[in-house]
């Protein structure tokens, strides 16, 4: 939709905007619907009650879709299509998907972000771990539809340009992988884990749960327990723990290559 287009809103449309985006209503009435409003509307109503049930919402969405949806291919026969706007690796993305599509499949098949891996598709391996709204979650058990309005960070979003994230550097140094398939999930999990430690989160191996909450220094055993949702079949576990400990503690962890 053109930034300056100023459509005449029907009463129903006004009501819709008033319900969903009261803080923007004045601006909309004055200057019309712009792209930002539209994206926000999609976020709020993305497949929600209104999108599904309100003819008005559908009209608004439909009217704008030809210009705002990405030009990517949408399979013809989508059932229960849901349009989702969210932020992926800092960029606003909007896509229309079958309601069944997981965040993992959406990232991989629709957004060309194939770094997140499908290892089991049932939340039993952790290879699909991404960071949504700051928390590590399993993208295979997350419906993309439920991500409307959220921020998603994947392995592709960790490095700043050519500068690797410290966790990526540490994995490289400590050889925290072999085949590399679980690695994006391990790294995303590890990055989020550091924040959990800063917030003072406990784990099953934390001895005393009762002292006051504050940032915690993690032992290797704590890191192991907290990373246990990320399976590495190649068995790079000790190297992964060393990498995470190095970043967590800020102290270099020694690498020993022994021969006699």
């Amino acid at each position: 939709m053109d930034e300056h287009e100023s459509p005449e809103l029907t009463e129903d449309e006004k009501q819709l905007f008033a319900d969903l985006m009261p803080e923007d209503l004045t601006e909309i009435m004055d200057k019309g619907v712009n792209r930002r409003h539209f994206l926000k509307l999609m976020t709020l109503a993305g497949g929600g009650i209104l999108a599904a049930q309100s003819a008005v919402a559908e009209q608004v969405l439909t009217r704008s879709s030809s210009e705002t949806l990405p030009t990517e291919l949408v399979p013809d026969s989508l059932e229960n299509a849901v349009t989702v706007a969210c932020k992926v690796n800092g960029k606003a993305r909007t896509f229309t998907i079958d309601s069944r599509m997981t965040l993992l499949d959406t990232l991989r098949e629709r957004l060309d972000l194939t770094g997140s891996k499908k290892g089991c598709d049932h939340g039993q391996c952790g290879a699909c771990t991404v960071i949504v709204n700051g928390s590590r979650v399993l993208s295979c058990l997350t419906l993309a539809a439920s991500c409307a309005g959220k921020t998603v960070q994947t392995i592709e979003g960790l490095a700043q340009g050519n500068r690797l994230h410290p966790m990526q550097e540490a994995f490289l140094k400590h050889d925290g992988f072999q085949c590399g398939f679980c690695t994006p999930g391990q790294i995303c999990s590890a990055v989020a884990l550091l924040d959990e430690a800063k917030k003072g989160h406990a784990s099953y191996v934390t001895g005393n749960l009762r002292p006051p909450v504050g940032p915690v220094k993690l032992s290797n055993e704590e890191i192991r327990e907290r990373m246990s949702g990320n399976i590495c079949r190649c068995g790079a576990y000790p190297n992964i723990v060393a990498a995470i400990q190095e970043v967590h503690s800020g102290q270099s962890v020694e690498q020993v290559f022994r021969s006699v």
């Binding site: 917030k199 989160h201 406990a202 934390t206 749960l209 246990s228 949702g229």
Partner: peptide, 28 residues
């Protein structure tokens, strides 16, 4: 599991939650 009230007064509950699943799943 991590709420101060729960940890202080119901550590059994924190522990049980933390015994289940994985960090990612508990976040969801």
């Amino acid at each position: 599991a991590n709420h101060p009230l729960v940890r202080q007064h119901y550590p059994l509950l924190s522990q049980a939650i933390l015994a289940g699943a994985s960090g990612q799943i508990r976040n969801m």
